[in-house]
Amino acid sequence: MVSLVEMPQAMPQQLSRQNDRRADEVNGAEIMIDVRDLDFAYGANKVLHDVTLDIPPQAVTAFIGPSGCGKTTLLRCINRMNDLIEGARITRGAIHLGGVDINAPEVDVVDLRRRVGMVFQKSNPFPKSIYENISYGLRIAGINKRSQIDEAVEKSLRGAALWDEVKDRLDEGALGLSGGQQQRLCIARALAVEPDVVLMDEPCSALDPIATAKIEELIQELKMQYTIVIVTHNMQQAGRVSDHTGFFYLGKLIEFGPTTKIFTNPSERRTEDYITGRFG
């Protein structure tokens, strides 16, 4: 298996690390994730139809749409989480990350998931200490030097705006944190391995308004360094945090564009009807 990062010579279209080189420098365009003509099916059930969109780097892209429209499926395609579901497969098209086809046989999926972190709807810290939650991914990546891990833990917790709240109790269990803190810990865990992309699947749906505001504020800070893709049912949240919005309906991408445009003057009637609450 080939690491996406460590195979520069063998793969002409090597996956670029955003921290090293931006995707646009590789491709000559402002594209981090290039989804092209994508069809996806769970067994015989086709759930994504001919989806094409370009996700720009260092920006927040939101996917919105009614339940079952395929937005989470597409999100999970970006780090191949759907590989874990039996019978789930891309039947047509491709996704390129920094110019590399993420479904190419030589791509190391573990490495891909390191480059493309994910935060889920419900916070899912390991039943371990706060420190171990962050260090776990680093150890898996082969980093064992204590000083290096300490540095990464602090950097990640600071990056997730959690450091000040937990710095004196890093050895305490992560499950003792509040829901909002647990979600930020999960974000810190994703940041620890220095990804290029962070996928967020309804990251605030289980949080109160204060914890939600903290996560949204964090997203704004994270986009300076990372490409963020967020799935949300909260239209106001999409409007607040995202730079670009894609509206999905029945497995199709109906409209994709700047968030301000989508929420003030969408081009498609179906987008307008959905965001204004006229569906049904």
């Binding site: 239209m235 929420f263 003057n265 204004t276």
Partner: peptide, 10 residues
């Protein structure tokens, strides 16, 4: 109450 968007907001 309704946080209107798009044509409603306009």
């Amino acid at each position: 109450r309704f946080q209107p968007v798009a044509s409603d907001l306009r």
